[in-house]
């Protein structure tokens, strides 16, 4: 009943990149940073133009029919036997953990299971498959890490972000109180239960500020949008950045990309 142990593949020649709709429409720089990091590791990145959304918003709201209909055409987008890399724990979790459930007993079951087994969270892939080595070229900075709940619990990558940041000499990773606690985003939860969501994101933001972080580096754009959006509205001194934007920026000298 324990989750099966993850077996990392050998570093492949090619990967598919599944950007997620949030990255595509709002934070494409994070997607581009991810793609460039992969390419710098010598991997050819295939970006199927037919990709849209992983279907999770509908699925987690209970609208499985609608979720399935969104996913079905996309099951055909990854014909080659390459890993599918996703810059989000939550969409990655949807694909890896929930596609098999969603399609169990349907004609798409095999395809869904095959896709699920090939899905990797991007930072996990960079660290544990590419064995990436990062060389910091930025100024000293204090950041905190927010690993999304799905990255942490569904994809099991809680250790990955801090280890990647640990490779950066000038980056001080500060520890906030209750790092494993949810930021209160939860997709449609933030709209269905705005009061509870606010109480959660307020606590999260204050914990990050209290830890002395200038920037919160996040595995998922959803959480980043939530925390940074709260900080901005309430004038708290905290910026948000997707972790791959941050890593790319620190190791290439490009500034300001993908910031929220």
């Amino acid at each position: 009943m324990t989750d099966p142990i993850k077996l990392y593949p050998a570093k492949p020649e090619k990967v598919y990149f599944f950007a997620t709709c949030l990255v595509d429409l709002f934070y494409p720089d994070a997607g581009m940073a991810g793609i460039q990091l992969l390419e710098r590791e010598g991997i050819e990145v295939l970006f199927p133009q037919g990709q849209t959304c992983c279907g999770q918003p509908a699925f987690s709201s209970g609208f499985n029919d609608q979720a399935r209909d969104v996913v079905i055409p996309q099951l055909e987008l990854f014909p080659g036997d390459y890993p599918i890399v996703v810059p989000a724990g939550s969409c990655g979790g949807m694909m890896r953990k929930h596609y098999p459930e969603l399609f169990a007993g349907t004609p798409w079951q095999d395809k869904a299971e095959n896709l699920a087994a090939r899905t990797w969270e991007l930072t996990d892939f960079l660290l544990n498959v590419c064995h990436i080595r990062l060389e910091d070229q930025g100024e000293p900075v204090k950041v905190a890490m927010h690993t999304s709940c799905s990255a942490r619990r569904e994809m099991g990558v809680a250790e990955v972000g801090p280890r990647l940041l640990g490779q950066l000499g000038q980056v001080e990773l500060v520890e906030q109180a209750r790092p494993a606690e949810c930021c209160g985003f939860g997709g449609t939860f933030a709209v269905r239960h705005p009061e509870i969501s606010e109480a959660m994101v307020a606590d999260k933001t204050e914990a990050l500020v209290a830890a002395g972080a200038e920037t919160v580096v996040a595995t998922d754009c959803g959480c980043m949008m939530n925390i940074a959006g709260y900080a901005e509205k309430n004038r708290r001194p905290l910026k948000g950045q997707h972790i791959v934007s941050f890593l790319w920026e620190r190791t290439c000298g490009h500034g300001g990309e993908g910031k929220a």
Partner: peptide
């Protein structure tokens, strides 16, 4: 945008989507 912006700012769409950039 509804209850979201009661407590947060809302993000602006990017200048170009990743689809466009990759294209």
């Amino acid at each position: 945008v509804g209850p979201w912006t009661r407590y947060r700012t809302s993000p602006k769409p990017a200048a170009k989507t990743l689809h466009q950039m990759m294209n």
